[in-house]
């Protein structure tokens, strides 16, 4: 039962953190504090909340939201597929590394948002340009993480499949892709974050509709509560999409030995069967996981309201015979 109390306690702490932030903001703006920084022009939390509620009732708000989501999902999904494909190719084939590597290494340092002029020239409309910029933003983190993850795979796994008579495609499907998944999801996590930055910036520069476009429009007409509603919306959408990626990553890499690590970290020993419902995190935030290759970003951070503590990952099957029963017979 300690697990339940600990969870409730941690939820409380998180709520306190959020409420404390909002309270401080309300206090500083309502009292019109002018120290070295000025809070007297900034809308109060109450102003922003009022504006937010009012906008939720308008069709424009939802159209902006839908447009931005459509752009980021298109760009991000393209980046995920092509980033993984290119990363695997470069990681596995010297020919691909020689052919693709130099061009990609030249393009990589260019901030995606700096591609706006190119996008305007090349693409027939704004829409494709924004998707292209979002794609570029997310593509490189995915590519780099995938490449590292593929190169860091234990050779024994591939050798095992080869000696069983498996061919190239078998190795790719049964060893390379599953083995690289933890690293790939690290890249996807970074990618979705950068993609939001770039889709909003691109919309601010050249969009028709979209949350970024609306936020900038509100700024040009000095509608500060509107600007802040835009920012809150971006924050919520970003959080939602990153959480979705995190969750997908945890579900796809259930096989990582997390439970033992969590136990070592002194977290609660609550055990749950595999096949957890959606919305439950399987690992405490920031757990370092073996299988995440050097250089790859570990899938870290936990979803809001996630269950802390040691929940055993998949494989905690119904059988609970102690090891000693069959161990070393």
């Amino acid at each position: 039962m300690t697990g339940r109390w600990e969870r409730a306690y941690r939820r409380l702490l998180r709520a306190v953190s959020l409420l404390g932030f909002l309270g401080l903001w309300q206090l500083l703006t309502a009292l019109r504090v002018r120290a070295w920084v000025h809070f007297d022009q900034l809308p109060t939390v109450v102003d922003v909340a009022r504006e937010f509620r009012q906008r939720l009732g308008t069709g424009v708000y939802w159209q902006d939201l839908g447009d931005s989501l459509g752009r980021i999902l298109t760009g991000f999904c393209l980046a995920a597929v092509l980033g993984v494909a290119a990363g695997v190719a470069i990681g596995r084939s010297r020919l691909a590394a020689d052919l693709l590597g130099p061009v990609l290494e030249l393009l990589r340092p260019i901030p995606a948002i700096a591609l706006v002029p190119v996008a305007i020239l090349v693409f027939p409309g704004n829409e494709q340009g924004i998707v292209f910029i979002t794609f570029c933003a997310a593509f490189f983190p995915v590519l780099v993480s995938t490449r590292h993850a593929v190169r860091a795979l234990t050779p024994v796994w591939e050798e095992a499949v080869l000696t069983m008579g498996g061919g190239r495609w078998r190795v790719l499907a049964q060893v390379v892709l599953p083995g690289a998944l933890p690293g790939i999801f690290g890249g996807l996590s970074v990618g979705i974050g950068v993609a939001w930055i770039c889709v909003i910036s691109a919309e601010m520069i050249s969009g028709d509709y979209g949350v970024g476009y609306r936020t900038w429009q509100d700024y040009t007409v000095v509608d500060y509560p509107g600007v802040l509603v835009g920012m809150v919306t971006i924050g919520l959408l970003g959080h939602l999409t990153s959480s979705a990626v995190e969750l997908a990553g945890r579900r796809a890499t259930r096989w990582l030995p997390r439970a033992e690590q969590a136990a070592e970290r002194g977290a609660s020993g609550r055990r749950t069967r595999g096949g957890l419902p959606f919305g439950r995190a399987l690992a405490p935030a920031g757990a370092v996981r073996p299988g995440t290759p050097a250089g790859g970003t570990p899938v870290a951070g936990s979803a809001p309201g996630s269950a802390p503590g040691a929940e055993s990952a998949a494989g905690d099957g119904p059988v609970t015979v102690p090891d000693s029963v069959t161990h070393g017979r």
Partner: peptide, 28 residues
């Protein structure tokens, strides 16, 4: 080349960690 009915057993960590015991045995 590899295959051809010559199976290799490794010192350790030869199993694919994302596959259950059954799925590992089913692989060949």
């Amino acid at each position: 080349g590899p295959g051809g009915g010559r199976a290799l057993v490794f010192q350790e960590d030869g199993l694919l960690p994302w596959r259950t015991a059954r799925a590992n045995v089913e692989l060949p």
